[in-house]
Nucleic acid binder design. Structure first.
Length: 371
DNA sequence: TCAGCTCGCACCTTTGAACCGC
DNA sequence: AGCGGTTCAAAGGTGCGAGCTG
């Protein structure tokens, strides 16, 4: 099973049950940094861990809510960008979530990773993102394990979980705990909750994966869209130094424009304001022939999460495929793991058959079996 | 030529050690 | 001795912009 993966072997035989789980992830990340796979269908942890173990799902009542949803939506509505650097850059907005309905006495691990949502590379041209070619292969298997992992459900549910230390990089030789991304590619954040039942539960314990549409972003080495840049400056405390109208070479009109654009607006108004721009941007982005997406737009709302029961789901109509197991094994067909999708609820289910689940991103394959 | 990337910089927040008073 | 509050320097997170690269 382990093959010649000595790093993994050493981690797997760690004496402490939970230390070995963390060590496993670290080792997998380390291994992947040295021996990256570019095969889009093989998750390295899965590849070197378990290839054919069926995963149970967590209790279907388990609920995850994305915190700071309003800010995420504001970035989402413009077309979020995240800076990546060789040394690693933090995510902003910070990914925060609150979990409910876990077993208070059971121990869990919480992991975060970032996966591509399509096979395209993009470029920013004439104030819009357009496809510029085929994507570079994504290196799978880099996860950020929440430093509090593992802890009991009661502890996880006590307060919101913050992933403020997560860093993204474009340097494969950077710290393996940083998530490796390609510039000018589009990604989405995933959250994984794994029941920590024993030494190897990271590979075998019940798992649920949660995806939040609002976290879609394009990785860049420099901001392309001024609106995004200004929104970051106005909301990130570390960028406060760039808010001052007289700062550096910023001219007053530019600063004034930025300040105006950042004024708090009534939520619905703000989204509607960006709506037309988003449609234009996405249509050019997602369809080379510039066909606009269906006029069925809603701002995703992860504050009202609904879950998919994959056993009930009609895969012939829905673009959503189950996360088979953690790690994903492309050669099994286990639909046990549920996944969060804000569009899927009792009232919108019928719409699903006609409209892609993730609205603005009909080419979504970020929930296809990579994992 | 140029889009994309790197690096040093100024400016800022965060962090934690040291100090102080109760 | 222990605790809580304050101060302050170091560490680290920002975007900027010039220069580099393929």
């Amino acid at each position: 099973m382990l093959g010649d993966n000595n790093i993994f072997q050493h981690a797997a035989v760690a004496s402490s049950a939970y230390a070995s789980m963390a060590a496993f992830t670290a080792a997998a990340n380390m291994y992947n940094s040295f021996y990256p796979t570019t095969n889009p269908h093989i998750d390295p942890i899965n590849y070197f861990g378990c290839t054919d173990t069926k995963r149970e799902q967590l209790d279907s009542k388990v609920c995850v809510k994305l915190e700071g949803i309003d800010l995420w939506k504001r970035f989402y509505s413009i077309g979020n960008e995240m800076i990546i650097t060789k040394l690693g850059r933090r995510l902003f907005p910070t990914f925060r979530a609150s979990i409910s309905e876990l077993d208070p006495n059971m121990k869990y691990m919480v992991l975060l990773d970032i996966v591509p949502i399509d096979d395209n590379r993009y470029k920013y041209q004439e104030s819009a993102w357009i496809i510029s070619g085929k994507a570079e292969p994504h290196i799978y298997g880099r996860y950020f394990v929440h430093p509090d992992s593992p802890q009991t459900g009661a502890q996880w549910m006590k307060q919101s979980i913050q992933f403020n230390k997560v860093k993204i990089t474009n340097n494969p030789m950077q710290n393996p705990n940083q998530i490796l991304l390609n510039s000018m590619h589009r990604y989405i954040i995933r959250l994984h909750i794994i029941q920590a039942t024993d030494d190897y539960s990271i590979r075998t314990g019940p798992l649920s994966t949660f995806i939040f549409d609002e976290t879609v972003f394009i990785a860049v080495t420099a901001y392309q869209n001024d609106e995004i840049k200004n929104l970051k400056i106005d909301n990130n405390p570390f960028a406060k130094g760039f808010r001052e109208p007289t700062h550096g070479k910023k001219n007053s009109s530019k600063s004034l424009k930025r300040l105006q654009s950042s004024l708090p607006l009534e939520k619905s108004t703000k989204y509607e304001e960006h709506h037309s721009r988003l449609c234009k941007s996405d249509s050019s982005l997602l369809s080379p022939d510039s066909i606009s997406p269906p006029l069925h737009h809603t701002i995703p709302d992860s504050t009202t999460p609904t879950y998919i029961n994959h056993h009930e789901q009609d895969l012939n109509f829905s673009p959503i495929y189950p996360h088979h197991q953690f790690p994903y094994n492309p050669y099994t067909n286990d639909s046990s793991t549920m996944m969060y999708n804000p569009y899927m609820n009792s009232t919108s289910r019928s719409t699903m058959n006609n409209f892609p689940a993730y609205g603005y991103y009909p080419t979504n394959n970020y929930n296809t079996p990579y994992f």
